[in-house]
Design a protein around this nucleic acid. Structure first.
Lengths: 268, 268
DNA sequence: GCAAAAGTGTTGATAATACACCCATGC
DNA sequence: GCATGGGTGTATTATCAACACTTTTGC
């Protein structure tokens, strides 16, 4: 473990410091922001966090240590927020426009915080944000926000509160990117638990593509690709026919992902 | 014009300074690298540059000024190298792995240069490189390398010399990205001159997809999309039938790009 | 029985693929 | 004439998209 890593570990235990950015440890003017996506109760959720001193929700994020791969920084953020270690994680865009962060917003937050204004001046700096999206299994996540300084919560992706700075735009860019690359992103495999129903899988694709998909054609298509396997089990879901449970065949899935699958060609 | 912009303009006139990175002007530890692609004589070319003091070719790149949008930095690099202002430019990835730049390589280059080793220490730093690719019309480019300190040249994308650091990997990532998004990237429109032949257009797709495409099916497909228009002209190309010339219909093309075109579905 | 949602089957339209054939050009 | 490569046509196959019909479940 390098000395910097050690310091980072220390920082994880002292949450107020995550609001700070020591220029000796971190690369200045660079941050990492994570869009953590989950699937629950029939809709896509995004995990947001909020400093108690702020009134706006924001994307979980962090800084990049001087000897750290940005992927590692993102993993650190994910571990902090979800408690998970092995997560599907992809960079998708970087954001660096001059006016992307409203300084007023930050000055306000800084005033409300108990930080020393003279020492902590990064909120007044310009930042290049490295954008990552992560796909997690909702029920495996245990929200890890520090009760004293910040909160964390899942939000329906279609019903988000007002967000800090350009974070709404960042989320939109993430979903747009996933949409364009839907054939190469294992959304089903990463978002669903081991056993799932066909309507659940379809629901994810509908949420991401933003349009309804024919139930029957979808089912045929998914089965024809050959990476999901029907189980001899059903799930009771109220006053309807109980849907079959399916599971992914890992090897076939990896193959399909590499070459991309055609999801209802009508490219969104 | 801000004072920083003025300083940057000055810097453009003093090429040796582009090897320097003043931490008061530029964001530390961040660089921009550009893959400039052109099409000439039946193959894809990439524009590379080389410091006279170095023996390895590298991607044209630069730094991001503190009050500058990274897109602007990339445009600045493009202007410096090609003399062009309006260029199709997209960010595609960022590179930040710890060992991505061999320090030995940089120490060697620094020694050979006439820079003051004490003042100029960025070559020993770690960098996060913001990757951009640009599509240019080959015959509109006039190579602008400063004769005294650096050279610039086009290389066939399949016959590149040994490159500096991880720049080969960066180029591979760029072509891979374009390949995956081929339906959304206006390669033909941006790489070809106003008038072009069908084989030329096909050649570009073949180079990017890395596989032969059926001549006849390709032609039909492109014409059926309806964004290219046959002209009543042909081009003499030696001992064969003279191919027709075509041109793009801008409006139709924009439409097609937004929704993506399906290029021989067999997704690469 | 009825409503709601799941599973299976059919069919016409559209698009991809693999060719065969003819045309123009320079030597 | 012949080699080379461009342009047009066609037949086969695969895939999409729309919809009818059946099944299961809770009330």
């Amino acid at each position: 473990m390098s000395s910097n890593e050690k310091i980072i570990m220390e920082k994880e235990k002292v949450p107020v410091d995550t609001i700070d950015q020591d220029p000796d440890i971190f690369i200045p003017n660079v941050s990492v922001d994570c869009i953590i996506l989950g699937f629950h109760a029939g809709s896509l959720k995004v995990l947001l966090s909020k400093f108690k001193v702020s009134d706006k929700w924001m994307l979980p994020g962090g800084f990049v240590a001087k000897d750290e791969d940005p992927d590692e920084s993102a993993k650190r953020v994910l571990r902090e927020k979800t408690g998970l270690n092995d997560i599907y994680l992809k960079q998708f865009y970087f954001f660096g426009k001059k006016g992307r962060i409203g300084l007023d917003e930050n000055v306000e937050m800084l005033k409300r915080s108990k930080l020393n204004h003279d020492k902590v001046n990064w909120p007044l700096d310009r930042f290049i944000s490295l954008g990552y999206y992560a796909l997690v299994k909702y029920n495996e996540v245990t929200l890890q926000a520090d009760e004293e300084y910040e909160e964390a919560a899942w939000f329906d992706i279609n019903q988000m509160p007002e967000l800090y700075a350009d974070h709404k735009e960042i989320i939109d860019t993430a979903t747009f990117t996933i949409r364009r690359q839907i054939g190469f992103v294992p959304v089903g495999y990463e978002l669903l638990p081991e056993k799932f129903t066909m309507p659940e899988l379809r629901c994810i694709y509908e949420a991401i593509l933003g349009r309804p998909i024919d139930r029957r054609n979808f089912q045929r298509k998914m089965l024809s690709i050959g990476y999901i396997q029907p189980l001899n089990e059903t799930r009771k879901v109220g006053a309807h026919k109980s849907p079959n449970l399916y599971t992914f065949i890992k090897e076939k899935y990896d193959e399909a992902e590499r070459f991309g699958i055609q999801v209802m060609s009508n490219n969104f």
